[in-house]
Structures are given as C-alpha cells and as structure tokens.
Amino acid sequence: MNEKQETKYQLILDAAFEQMKENGFEKASVSQIVKRAGVAQGTFYLYFDSKSAIVPAIAERILCEQIDVVRNEVRDGDDILSIVRVLIDQTFALTDKHREVIKFCYSGIAYYDSFQRWEDIYRPYYEWVELKLQEAMEKKEIPSLSVLSYQAKLIIGIIEQSAETYYLASDPTKEENVDIYKEELFQFIKRALS
C-alpha cells in the first residue's frame, strides 16, 4: 500500500474499532464506519469485502498493541520470570481495556477466517517469546525445553485464556481479586518452567 492507501486503511480501521467498541459488532454498520472515517463507502470495499472481513484486522491491531507494550516493558537482561510477569500484567491490562472488542473478534474471526489467520497474526509474538525462552535456557535460568515454539505458544495461550476467563467469562458481580488471580497464574507458569 502507498502512504495514501495506508492512511485510508487506518482511518477505516480506527473508525471500525471505535464503532464496534461503542455499539457492538452486530449494530455497527459499514455506513456508520465510513461516515466516522470520512471516506466513501466504496473505499471501505477496496480494503474489506464485508464488515466481517475487518475483524481479523482489528484482532491484529490489538495484538500489535500487546506486542509493543510488552517489548517496551521488557529490558535487556530481564530474567524469564520477570518477562512472564510482564506478559501476564500487560495481557490482563489489554484484555480489560479492549474486552468488548475482543469478544466480537473471537466470534468474528472464527466465522470469517481460518485458524491459520490466527497463527499468522500471532507469529511475531510467538517468535519473540520463543527467543526469550532460548535466552533463558542459555543463561541457565530454566532447564532445557524440548520444543521452544510449543512452549511459547503454551505460555501465551494460558496467559490469554486466563485473562479472557477473568474479564470475559467471569460473573461481574463476583468479587475476585485480579492480583491474586495473576499471582496464581504466575506461580503455575513458574513451576512449569522449572
């Protein structure tokens, strides 16, 4: 995409993100999205063939935000357990921040796209965590792990599933202490890595 196309794409993505956050996926319409973006309706269809087609792009945007925040929090030389704490804290914070959008992303991407699209979106995140596990093994912080790519996916998966369970599936009237929940998750992953 050239710069002008990228700008329009981002305007549409921003508008869709906000529109769906405010009104939910079902109530958001393409006409509302393009009006908010300040582009013609035909422009929307240059980038997306339907409203559902924008869901993977929104999911990717949330994950890119996650990766950026995590990378900015992790410092060179941080041990693997410090990195796991950052992963947990930032995943929970982002899930809380975008809980409404995440709900429709799951249903929409499952409807619209294959699970391969999820793998493509997550690949940079998996690779980054895999690299951190490799570094931890080389520094003898953790024992040798058999298949690092699987370990990275498992760690990311359990953290995200835990955050989503806490924020999306929990009874909102039930008082659970998020710090205790995150600490239990941390201890579980710590034992798994030992």
Rank of each mutant, 00 (worst) to 15 (best):
Met1Cys: 07
Lys4Pro: 05
Lys4Phe: 12
Glu6Cys: 05
Thr7Cys: 06
Thr7Arg: 14
Leu11Ile: 08
Ile12Cys: 03
Leu13Trp: 07
Leu13Met: 08
Asp14Pro: 04
Gln19Tyr: 05
Gln19Lys: 12
Asn23Asp: 15
Asn23His: 15
Phe25Val: 13
Glu26Val: 15
Ser29Thr: 15
Ser31Pro: 06
Ile33Arg: 10
Val34Lys: 06
Arg36Thr: 14
Ala37Phe: 10
Ala40Ile: 07
Phe44Asn: 06
Phe44Leu: 10
Phe44Val: 09
Asp49Ser: 12
Lys51Ala: 05
Glu60Trp: 03
Ile62Asn: 06
Glu65Thr: 09
Glu65Tyr: 03
Gln66Ser: 10
Ile67Asn: 02
Asp68Ala: 11
Val69Met: 10
Asn72Pro: 01
Asn72Gln: 09
Glu73Lys: 13
Val74His: 04
Asp76Phe: 11
Asp76Pro: 09
Asp76Ile: 09
Asp79Gln: 10
Ile83Met: 07
Val84Ala: 03
Arg85Met: 08
Ile88Met: 05
Ile88Gly: 04
Ile88Thr: 07
Thr91Pro: 03
Thr91Ala: 10
His98Asp: 11
His98Phe: 13
Val101Phe: 10
Phe104Val: 13
Phe104Cys: 14
Cys105Thr: 14
Ser107Tyr: 13
Ser107Phe: 14
Tyr112His: 12
Asp113Thr: 10
Phe115Gln: 08
Phe115Thr: 09
Trp118Lys: 07
Asp120Cys: 00
Ile121Ser: 00
Arg123Ile: 00
Pro124Cys: 04
Pro124Tyr: 00
Trp128Ile: 00
Leu131Tyr: 07
Leu133Ser: 01
Glu135Trp: 03
Glu138Trp: 04
Lys140Asn: 12
Glu141Pro: 04
Pro143Thr: 00
Ser144His: 04
Ser144Trp: 02
Leu145His: 01
Leu145Gln: 06
Ser146Tyr: 07
Val147Lys: 10
Val147Thr: 07
Val147Leu: 09
Leu148Ile: 01
Leu148Trp: 01
Tyr150Gly: 01
Ala152Glu: 00
Lys153Gln: 09
Leu154Ile: 09
Ile155Arg: 02
Ile155Glu: 01
Ile158Cys: 06
Ile158Pro: 02
Ile159Gln: 02
Ile159Ala: 03
Ser162Pro: 00
Glu164Ser: 04
Glu164Arg: 08
Thr165Leu: 07
Tyr166Trp: 03
Tyr167Asp: 02
Tyr167Ala: 02
Ser170Trp: 04
Lys174Tyr: 11
Asn177Arg: 08
Ile180Asp: 11
Lys182Ala: 02
Leu185Lys: 02
Leu185Cys: 01
Gln187Arg: 15
Gln187Tyr: 11
Gln187Gly: 06
Lys190Asn: 04
Arg191Glu: 09
